[in-house]
Design a protein around this nucleic acid. Structure first.
Lengths: 139, 139
DNA sequence: GATAGGGGTTCCACCTGATGGAAGGTCAAT
DNA sequence: ATTGACCTTCCATCAGGTGGAACCCCTATC
């Protein structure tokens, strides 16, 4: 199967598939004309990768998950551990964004958004310098 | 003031400060010996940048915010608009992560995490290929 | 005066995860 | 023979820095 068909079937752009070959995630055969020739298992792998990436797993995680996927002697605990670490990363990211959101929403709320220059958003971004200055004086 | 002191006061790594100069966010003077010489307003700017980045604003947003900050003729609506767009970005990111989290948490939950190879996580990552196949057959 | 240390400088490479585009080969149909 | 849709490689670019090498500067100490 040529890369175009694989792209369609796996849902990944051809460029991405080439990139995944580049970094060793898939190893398609080559036809006589030099075209990449994907077997079913290559397509499976790519779809697997697409799903894993959609869950936010890093490429290195994907590499490991793929290895486990193809290893009949794996234990589910190995897989679960990778997933748990990822879950944790997601949780921390969500927490971080939630905090950002709260701060920013508060500022947006306080800003009149009119023709005047007075702006609590800029004031806040600038004000913290003074806090730092105070911290430095205190320290 | 030398870059080390500025780094300490602004909370930004010296490397980052040099990078910010590189991309034109700050323009410190130079001492006779070639060292960067930061004025108070440079330090202010850097602290401002640190805060804005902490709220997730892109460098380009930061550039614009900084321009508005230094422009007495700005309107608060200009600032608010940038902030609202960013708020929206954060909201979408949180939504995306929350969905990832739900899926992944479900899978982690379903996985025994023991010595056996059977793993719902891998099964799920692999299974979607079949869904795609079905979709393709249907299409 | 030599030397050690803790600054500073530039420049280039690398990171993640692709994506865009140029220049050119291949193939099926007209 | 030529068009158009494929495919190939290679190189550059994006964000937002970070790491490290090689080298300069300044002060203090012996």
């Amino acid at each position: 199967m040529n890369i175009g068909d694989v792209a369609e079937r796996s849902g990944l752009p051809a460029k991405t598939i080439r990139y995944y070959e580049d970094i060793g995630l898939v190893k398609p055969l080559r036809s006589a004309n030099g075209y990449r020739s994907f077997r079913d298992r290559d397509v499976h792998k790519l779809a697997f990768l697409g799903r894993a990436r959609a869950l936010g797993f890093s490429i290195e995680d994907c590499r490991n998950l793929l290895k486990l996927y193809e290893d009949d002697d794996r234990t589910s605990s190995e897989v679960k551990q990778i997933a748990e670490v990822q879950l944790d990363r997601i949780d921390r990211k969500i927490a971080e964004l939630t905090e950002m959101r709260a701060t920013l929403a508060h500022l947006v709320d306080a800003c009149a958004g009119d023709h005047r220059p007075d702006c609590p958003i800029l004031a806040d971004l600038a004000a913290k310098e003074e806090e730092i200055a105070l911290l430095n004086e205190a320290g």
